[in-house]
């Protein structure tokens, strides 16, 4: 039996209670909305992108602790990254939570994002952890229609 504390780590509970970079972004030039139709989670990601770099980021939305914390930690880990870097980070994050390449190795070098590694033991929750990231990618791609986890 996996310990719930592996899933609900203190960092996750803390970001759920006090989401960072939460709210609209005054100078946003890219935005996207995402929904998880299964549970009704909704998130919007706002970006300010300049010269191929993310110089500002915020999010808004409602959802479970995993999806809110994931969005919050994501915004913290994006600032001043290049768009390509951000995309690459999503790939790595996805591999880690979906355990695509086996457990254990993927969280190396992920910093705070490694707190979400426990999600891989809860397949039903992978979409909660990746909703904000899918939405981020849509924003980076400049898609303005809502993305869905389905």
């Amino acid at each position: 039996m996996s310990d719930l504390r592996d899933l609900y780590q203190e960092l996750i509970l803390d970001h759920n209670r006090k989401p960072r970079n939460f709210g609209p972004l005054a100078d946003a030039n890219r935005s996207a909305r995402g929904v998880n139709p299964l549970c009704g989670d909704k998130v919007a990601v706002h970006l300010h992108v300049e010269d191929g770099r993310v110089t500002g980021v915020s999010f808004e939305g409602t959802g479970c602790a995993i999806s809110i914390a994931s969005a919050s930690v994501m915004t913290e880990s994006l600032k001043e990254r290049s768009c390509d870097d951000a995309r690459e980070l999503f790939e790595r994050f996805h591999r880690m939570v979906a355990a695509d390449d086996g457990a254990g190795s993927a969280e190396a070098g992920m910093g705070k994002l490694a707190a979400f590694a426990g999600v891989r033991d809860y397949p039903a929750r992978v979409k909660c952890a990746t909703l904000a990231w899918h939405t981020l990618r849509a924003a980076l791609d400049g898609e303005d229609k809502a993305v869905s986890t389905e």
């Binding site: 899933l7 609900y8 299964l38 549970c39 989670d41 959802g63 602790a65 995993i66 909660c128």
Partner: peptide
């Protein structure tokens, strides 16, 4: 959130619907 409750209850063997 209901989803978090559902996951925690599941660990106790309890199946409820959340959503």
């Amino acid at each position: 959130h209901a989803h978090d409750i559902g996951t925690i209850l599941d660990q106790e063997g309890i199946a409820v619907r959340t959503g």
